[in-house]
Simulated assay, not measured.
Amino acid sequence: MKKLTVMLMGLGFATAAFPAVSVAAPFAPLNQRAQMIQSRIDQGIRSGNLNRREAFQLQGQLRGIQKLEYRYRLSGGRIDMRERADLERRYDALSAKVRFDKHDGHRRW
């Protein structure tokens, strides 16, 4: 019985420590977010929901955000909270624009 209690306590501590490990890599979510947006743009091109002009503009905006992220990382070695909030806001706006452009009815012919 005592071994089971100790084992469950150890499992509880390991579970409680898990979110701290996921926070330790702060740059992964931004990179993942850029990849997700790029895949949505690619899917819109393949399906015909995005025309060439829309796709070109969206990819240009994505490259601009990625360049800004790169500059933020060069300036201080890491991204601070203000810069991260700025990048998140820009990714949110671009994601909404991708969604709008994919469903606005301007299809490739």
Rank of each mutant, 00 (worst) to 15 (best):
P26E: 03
A24T: 05
S75V: 00
I41P: 02
L87R: 00
G60S: 10
Q61W: 02
S39R: 07
F27N: 10
G12P: 04
R71G: 03
M1Y: 09
E83D: 02
N31S: 09
R78N: 08
F100E: 05
S75D: 10
D86Q: 06
Q66K: 12
P29I: 00
G12Y: 04
V23L: 15
Q38F: 09
Q57S: 12
P26S: 07
A24N: 05
K3T: 15
I65Y: 00
F27I: 02
E88W: 13
E83S: 07
R40V: 00
Q59H: 05
T15D: 00
Q35G: 13
R46Y: 14
M9W: 14
R84V: 00
V21Q: 05
A17V: 06
Q57R: 11
L58K: 01
T5E: 09
K102P: 01
D104A: 06
Q43A: 14
W109G: 14
S47Y: 08
P19L: 10
K97M: 03
N31C: 10
L68S: 03
R33K: 12
R78T: 02
E83L: 06
L58Y: 01
A20L: 12
D80Y: 10
Q43N: 08
A25K: 13
V6R: 12
A28C: 09
G44N: 02
S47Q: 10
D92Y: 03
A16R: 03
L8A: 15
T5F: 14
L8G: 13
S95N: 13
R108W: 09
R78G: 06
N51E: 08
R46P: 01
V98S: 01
P26D: 02
Q59D: 06
A55G: 10
G48D: 08
M1G: 15
R82Q: 11
E69I: 00
L30P: 00
G12A: 12
N49A: 14
P19A: 09
L30W: 04
A96P: 02
G10F: 02
R108I: 04
V23M: 15
M1Q: 12
L62D: 00
V6C: 05
Q35I: 13
A17K: 04
E88Y: 14
Q59G: 05
L50R: 03
A85W: 11
F100R: 05
E54T: 01
S95K: 00
A14T: 11
F18M: 14
A20V: 01
